[in-house]
């Protein structure tokens, strides 16, 4: 399978993630779409790594995963605490800086 197919798939997955962030208003789903975008990037990393014949691309995937894990932990904690204060996680309704 040539590299182009993998990169096109990666681009499509990334775009779906972007559309999700633009269209959906639920913070949790926006968050999932960000994970989707990170994964699309991972796919491109591994595909290019395969075609370059080196392992560096796979290594970068680990760093992306570690950052994604850290981000999920913080993000979900923020979502939970926002929900406790406002009783909503609709990003359009969470629009004031204080209170």
């Amino acid at each position: 399978m040539s590299l182009e197919y993998y990169l096109i798939l990666s681009a499509l997955l990334f775009t779906i993630g972007v559309i999700g962030v633009l269209v959906r208003r639920n913070a949790i789903i926006i968050f999932m779409c960000i994970e989707l975008m990170l994964n699309a990037a991972n796919l491109a990393f591994v595909a290019i790594s395969r075609n370059l014949g080196t392992a560096e691309g796979q290594l970068f995937v680990f760093f992306v995963m570690a950052v994604a894990a850290a981000e999920v932990a913080i993000g979900l904690a923020i979502i939970v605490s926002v929900f406790k204060h406002r009783e909503t996680i609709n990003v359009d309704e969470v629009n004031s800086l204080k209170g």
């Binding site: 994970e35 591994v46 994604a68 999920v72």
Partner: peptide
């Protein structure tokens, strides 16, 4: 797809980290 690309280790870590840990956290919060 990672397995197809010959990255077996990344494939296993993908399932362990994303499917096994991160998504469980999402479900837990939901």
């Amino acid at each position: 797809l990672f397995v197809l690309l010959g990255a077996h280790f990344v494939a296993a870590v993908q399932v362990i980290v994303y499917a096994g840990a991160i998504m469980v956290l999402f479900l837990f919060v939901i």
